[in-house]
Simulated scan of single mutants.
Amino acid sequence: MSAPALVAAPLRVATWNINSVRLRAPLLRALVDELNPDVLCLQETKTPDEHFPHEAAEALGFTHRIITGMKGYNGVAVLSRLPLTRLPDGRDWCGKGDCRHLGVAVDLPGGPLEVHNFYVPAGGDVPDPAVNPKFAHKLDFVAEVTAWTAARGPAHRSVLVGDLNIAPLEHDVWSHRQMVGVVSHTPVEVEAMAGWQRAGNWYDALRHFVPEDQKLYTWWSYRAKDWRASDRGRRLDHIWVSQDLAGALQRHAVLKDARDWAQTSDHVPVMLEITV
């Protein structure tokens, strides 16, 4: 008798810039209640590995975890209900040792799924690399990632998520006219992101569900007295999939109400459900 055929099942992958995992670990329960992800990618964990709140993650069913963190800044983590393996091609981007990328393979019946979790540098306030080292670092980081992506070839059975700190499309910001000169939406950043996408032949999964002529935000500044009323948002958090998975997208969610949680991040969780 032949072995039964493997049946593709829906997988939920979520991403959230948590802006300190130790401070906001209690909010993970609300995220799980709302989105119930199988794989959760976090950015800006802001803690060295030895202080990561493993107990909180374990209590929520994330029995598999791979993390890379540092004290006070940056840091990324992948929490999963499914077995994980760290990919062997981890890099020290721009030679700064600042914990901005984590690649893992998720063990699935249909074969492993690569998941890449990125936290791209924000870039400071002045969009001029000659006078702003933070902006220069951002451009260098994306250029290095793009070259690495191109060397690996088109992505296959892969998902890329994270706080990429670039809002590339006109309706990824509250006002294209007023934001075009602001870091995160400048033409040089937008073109850099487009080059990165082309290098891996990545597919923008969120815009699969929300047409490009509709507003789509994942971040609202702490500076707004009433963020919901002003609604001056940006789409800084992204989920891309390899072209072979573009037809497997089932649904997405942007958990906008998370912006109202007590002591929350200025980013909100984003989830993609995909049949793999």
Score class of each variant (00 low, 15 high):
Ser2Pro: 04
Ser2Ile: 03
Ala8Asp: 11
Pro10Met: 07
Val13Trp: 11
Ala14Gln: 08
Trp16Asn: 05
Asn19Trp: 02
Ser20Thr: 12
Arg22Trp: 07
Arg29Pro: 00
Arg29Val: 12
Asp33Leu: 11
Asp33Tyr: 07
Leu35Val: 01
Asp38Arg: 00
Asp49Trp: 09
Glu50Ser: 09
Ala59Cys: 14
Gly61His: 01
Arg65Ile: 08
Ile66Lys: 08
Gly72His: 11
Tyr73Trp: 15
Gly75Met: 04
Val78Glu: 06
Leu79Met: 05
Ser80Asp: 11
Leu82Asn: 06
Pro83Tyr: 01
Thr85His: 00
Arg91Cys: 06
Gly95Trp: 14
Gly95Ala: 07
Cys99Leu: 11
Arg100Tyr: 05
Arg100Met: 02
His101Glu: 10
Val104Pro: 04
Ala105Pro: 07
Val106Ala: 02
Leu108Phe: 03
Gly111Ile: 06
Glu114Thr: 15
Phe118Cys: 04
Pro121Gln: 09
Gly124Lys: 09
Gly124Asp: 14
Pro127Tyr: 07
Asp128Asn: 14
Val131Thr: 08
Asn132Gln: 13
Pro133His: 00
Lys134Gln: 15
Asp140Met: 03
Val142Met: 04
Ala147His: 10
Ala147Asp: 13
Ala155His: 01
Ser158Ala: 12
Gly162Trp: 02
Asp163Met: 14
Leu164Tyr: 04
Ile166Arg: 02
Pro168Tyr: 08
Leu169Met: 07
Glu170Cys: 08
Asp172Ile: 00
Asp172Lys: 05
Trp174His: 12
Ser175Thr: 09
His176Glu: 11
Val182His: 10
His185Ser: 10
Val188Asn: 00
Arg198Cys: 05
Arg198Gly: 05
Arg198Met: 08
Ala199Leu: 01
Gly200His: 00
Ala205Lys: 00
Pro211Cys: 00
Lys215Gln: 14
Trp219Met: 00
Trp227Arg: 15
Asp231Pro: 08
Gly233Lys: 01
Arg235Gly: 09
Asp237Ala: 10
Asp237Trp: 03
His238Leu: 06
Ile239Arg: 15
Gln243Ala: 14
Ala248Lys: 04
Ala258Trp: 03
Ser265Glu: 12
His267Met: 03
His267Leu: 14
Ile274Glu: 07
